[in-house]
Simulated assay, not measured.
Amino acid sequence: MTAPDPPALRVGVVAALPQTAPPLVEAVQALGHRVPVVIGYRRPADWPGHVLGEHDLPPGVDLGIPFSTESVAGLLRAYAVDAAVSYGYPKKLPAAAVTVPRLGTVNCHPSHLPSYRGPNPVGWAVRNGERTIGVTWHRMDAELDTGSVLARTTIPLDEEIWSFTGVNSRVLQAASELLPQVLSRLVRGEAGEPQPPGEGSWAGFFSEDYATVDWSADAARIHTQVRAWNIAGHHPRVQGPVAVIDGSRWRLRRTTLQEPPPGTGRRITCGTGRLWVLAADPLD
């Protein structure tokens, strides 16, 4: 028996990027709910790309840019939201914020929680050779990615995906398909399934020990390193993967293990095997 649709809700969206907020707003609105506000994020000084702006949102949706996460609670309270949905926000929300909506706040995390908690779940999944990733909606609590699970699914993580944007579109599609179930459970007051205590793994930002390409390593390992860094996206402190080619430093953007058409890419002989550098940015 199919659960009835929940009544129309006022849903706040917490998302910082133009790749994440608009699709999430559309998914909520398509279910008949109203999105009065999107909580965005102030541009960091070192942020290389576009951050969410008011022109990215549909008419009737306000954009709130808090000075700090301590201001998020006040914004959600001011818009009197019944529930809030979050995806890809770059800062941990305080407990005072996630408890403002009367039905609670939920977050979409691209892993099978409790595995790969933290800010870089897909990057670590690629680094570890995973061929699939989870998509989990969970209640938000005082800790990070530890709340009870409301819905989850699995999507492929194949070799064709090379960027955060590519992963994000698949995650959001799967997340949107789960939203009716998630919101229905919120309306019914269901707590969700607790994550197993004492289990899980942490997926933090990559560190310096993974930032430099060692050409004496196996070609497949280097290829995975390049893909993992590019899917992980912007790093606030460490730049990678950095390789030396002909005495100059380059940040590698795309490689392949299969010989490309003539005149394409730069062939590198590695410790084991060969790969071709298809795209790179000079650093010197």
Rank of each mutant, 00 (worst) to 15 (best):
A45F: 07
V51G: 13
R43G: 01
R77M: 12
T69C: 09
G53M: 12
L63T: 12
E54A: 14
P36A: 01
D46S: 13
L52C: 07
V37T: 07
D46I: 08
L63C: 13
V72G: 00
P44E: 14
E70R: 14
P44V: 09
V61I: 10
G74I: 11
R42N: 08
V51W: 06
A45Y: 08
D62S: 15
D62N: 12
Y79K: 14
E54D: 12
L57G: 01
V61A: 01
L76G: 02
E54K: 15
V51I: 12
S71N: 14
H50M: 14
G74Q: 14
F67H: 14
L57P: 00
G60Y: 07
P59H: 03
I39T: 08
L75N: 00
V72P: 02
G40A: 08
Y41D: 10
R43W: 01
L52Q: 02
L52P: 04
L76I: 05
G40D: 03
G49P: 00
P36C: 03
R42D: 07
V35K: 00
Y41K: 06
V38P: 02
V35R: 00
V37I: 12
L57I: 09
P66C: 08
Y79Q: 04
V35S: 05
G40M: 08
S68R: 08
W47I: 04
L76C: 09
S71R: 10
L76N: 02
H55Y: 07
T69G: 13
E70K: 11
G40H: 02
V35G: 00
R77Y: 03
F67D: 12
R42W: 09
G40E: 02
I65T: 12
H50L: 10
Y41E: 11
D46W: 06
P58T: 06
P58M: 04
D62K: 09
H33L: 01
G49L: 12
V72N: 02
D62H: 13
D62W: 00
